[in-house]
Amino acid sequence: MTVDRLPFFDEGQVRAVLSYDDLIPVIRQALMDFSAGRAVQPLRTVMSLAAHTGWFAVMPAVYRGVMGAKMVTFYPGNADKGMHTHQAVIQLFRADTGEPVAIMDGRLITEMRTAAVSAVAVDLLAPVDAKVLGILGSGVQARSHVQALSRVRKFEEIRVWSRMDGNARRFAEEVGAQVTTAEEAVSGADVVLTLTSSPEPVLFGRWLKKDAMVCAIGAVTPNRRELDDEAMRGAVVVESREAALREPGDILLAKAEVSAEIGELLQGKQLDRRDRPVVFKSVGIAIEDIASAKLVYDRISGGDSGKY
Results as ranks from 00 to 15, higher is better:
V278I: 15
K154F: 08
E230Q: 15
Q270G: 01
P7Y: 08
A88Q: 06
Y75F: 15
M232R: 14
R274V: 03
P25C: 13
P277C: 03
R143C: 01
G77I: 01
L133S: 05
R170A: 14
F8H: 12
P127C: 06
F93L: 15
I290L: 14
A50E: 14
V132M: 08
N78E: 04
D190A: 09
P25S: 05
M112K: 10
A69N: 05
A189G: 04
K131R: 13
V192P: 06
S282E: 00
G188Y: 01
E257L: 04
A182Y: 04
R273C: 01
Y297H: 13
M59Q: 06
H145W: 09
E247A: 12
S48H: 11
A231W: 03
V160T: 06
A291N: 06
M104D: 13
V283I: 15
V152M: 11
I24L: 12
A30K: 02
R233M: 02
I290E: 07
H145T: 01
S144L: 02
I103C: 13
S198L: 06
D304G: 09
W55G: 08
G249C: 08
A168N: 03
P76W: 09
D289A: 03
D21R: 05
V186M: 12
I103T: 10
H84D: 15
L208F: 06
V258D: 14
D275S: 13
A36G: 12
G12A: 13
S240A: 10
E226H: 07
L195I: 00
Y308T: 09
S197W: 03
W207K: 06
K255I: 00
D211G: 08
K70A: 10
L108A: 07
S35T: 09
D229S: 07
D211L: 02
W55D: 15
G268Y: 09
D10G: 14
E200T: 12
G234P: 02
K131M: 13
M32A: 11
A119F: 02
M67N: 12
G205C: 03
L49K: 09
E157V: 15
D272N: 13
E257W: 00
T97N: 05
L133C: 10
